[in-house]
Design a protein around this nucleic acid. Structure first.
Ligand code: SF4
Ligand code: SF4
Lengths: 159, 159
DNA sequence: CAATATAGCACTGAAATGGTGCTATATGGC
DNA sequence: GCCATATAGCACCATTTCAGTGCTATATTG
């Protein structure tokens, strides 16, 4: 439905929270005390982020998670990719997988390539959006997203 | 999963096909002879497009559908909106609906506003993408999407 | 009137997603 | 050493969404 999953939203909430406490270690319990989220599910999400290398886990008492890189370097694209996988936007890509998983229309599909262009643009937007730019009231960098996107569009021509 | 539904893809295929035959009337049968799509489902999709005013229906024998406007005026945004509804990207919007449908996190959600900005950008991209620009080999206007988006970004600042 | 084609509406089956159970393992403090 | 805390891993169920179909009515052409 062209919508972020709850898992992705939870990941973003956790990460934005962690930006405010950059350098510190944040546990799932802390997050759940602050936001009314299902603890176990949030834990799964943090695990995924850890697997993707976006956060670093610290096990044991006093443990938790901390950002694996400065908030400027963590992009929305990387976050979405970690939780939902790289957005496909179409179903063509299933072709590369199981044999009969491919789209029947593929050979005569008139929209494959055009849609791919749109997909690239969206993905580019996500990649150009840093985690820090998602933190409310950064005071500076309010227009970072737009600026970066514009640069990105200027260079990478859509095919 | 941040992906178009099959219905939307089918709509795009039908519309792109109709651009090639602008001015003519295209029936669901014709479309199904050309592309291996489930006829009944495609019919439902065309109905939706008709309801949204993107195509004009012609009932009875020799009937079918024709574009309701030049392909330049039909935007990807309008098409998606017609089939899937306006993309919400988050679930906040459910608040406006049933009473207990609202998100629990809403009052303390730190990502609502930032995500909204992202949503605006994506939506803007869709609005800036005309149906004609989705037709393969338009010869001209290959970069129309990028051009329009750039203009759009230059004027409408993201809030 | 018969053939074609859309209009409308509800329904089923499959897949994705939200959310949970349970067990193992690592760390810090007493 | 032992216990409380916290992540790791993995499977599982419940809900929602989505793809696809059934059936009937209505409009148009010849
Ligand atoms: S081939 Fe065409 S119809 Fe099939 S999944 Fe790709 S874009 Fe969609
Ligand atoms: S309030 Fe926050 S968590 Fe809830 S749906 Fe909106 S963005 Fe997502």
């Amino acid at each position: 439905m062209l919508q972020f999953t709850k898992r992705t939203e939870y990941a973003l909430i956790a990460l934005v929270h962690m930006v405010d406490r950059e350098g510190e270690v944040t546990s799932v319990r802390e997050l759940c005390e602050r936001y009314p989220l299902p603890k176990r599910l949030l834990a799964e999400v943090l695990k995924d982020l850890s697997h993707a290398g976006l956060v670093v886990s610290h096990r044991g008492a006093q443990g938790g998670y901390s950002l694996a890189a400065p908030a400027e370097r963590l992009t929305l694209g990387a976050i979405i990719g970690a939780i939902e996988g790289v957005p496909t936007l179409t179903n063509c890509d299933a072709l590369a997988l199981s044999r009969d998983g491919g789209c029947e229309v593929h050979p005569v599909c008139p929209i494959r390539s055009p849609i791919e262009r749109v997909r690239e643009n969206i993905w580019r937007l996500f990649e150009a959006t840093s985690l820090r730019s998602l933190v409310p009231d950064p005071r500076a960098g309010r227009t970072e997203v737009i600026q970066r996107l514009r640069e990105s569009l200027a260079t990478g021509a859509p095919h």
